[in-house]
Design a protein around this nucleic acid. Structure first.
Lengths: 121, 121
DNA sequence: TCCCATAGTTCGGGAAATTGGAACTATTGA
DNA sequence: TCAATAGTTCCAATTTCCCGAACTATGGGA
């Protein structure tokens, strides 16, 4: 297994970041990792937004996030510890990650309201 | 020709916005429109980043930006006037569009430096 | 040491999205 | 009415995405 590739922060491309986060499963994963105070494993996301994600797909999703420069993945025994590279990203593209994570929360909140609104009928 | 569809601002999806702007041609187009003080036509972008864009592709790109909620397109005689929906987007996802446009500028500046650095050798 | 379980990666083929040339539509002006 | 201009739609070739199956790596036991 080739060692995981992490781009140096100055090589991070906006295009790759936006592409990585333009997938609903990946933003959800990233928002969770970015909001967590400790590293998260891949298998922690076997289900995202009440949907089962096959592990081959999960692996791909983590690869996309990693190669976009959004997360750092380190093997810790049998599992993988993933952390967000928020501080570095903030240096490269100020405000970007924060705005996206916030936007993701806005949308999630809107969805919950929708459900409540529906349930209230 | 069916009338152009513009999503109401509250229906705008983060996923669609990020996907729309994850293409180098589309961010460049959007950044230009967002920075312009008057409407821009599609044909103004026959070439983007020194690359020729066929008009069928351009038409698709504008459609993606429009359906993501990022721009408004209105026919004005024989041409199409495109304007950015920045204020509305700011209300829906505060700071998002501004951070992306800024990040795009950061990258463009980095590229220019690179060229200058190369030329200086 | 050998085997098993766990965590993730890689491979490969079918499905879906993107690209761009050619043909088409809409609007204006002569 | 005809020609010119500005975009759109169609479609086929290419590319990318998704996920099941097979594989690799690490850490325990027996």
């Amino acid at each position: 297994m080739r060692p995981l590739f992490h781009p140096p922060i100055e090589a991070v491309r906006l295009e790759a970041v936006l592409h990585a986060l333009s997938d609903p499963v990946r933003v959800a994963i990233f928002a969770d990792i970015a909001g967590a105070d400790c590293a998260r494993t891949c298998s922690a996301f076997a289900s995202v937004n009440d949907r089962q994600i096959p592990k081959s797909s999960l692996s791909q999703h983590f690869k996309v996030l990693r190669e976009a420069g959004l997360i750092r993945s380190e093997r810790q025994g049998v599992e993988m510890h993933n952390t967000a590279r928020c501080a570095e990203m903030e240096g490269r593209f100020p405000g970007l990650v924060a705005a996206i994570v916030k936007a993701h929360e806005v949308e999630a909140a809107g969805r919950t309201e929708g459900i409540e609104g529906l349930a209230a009928k």
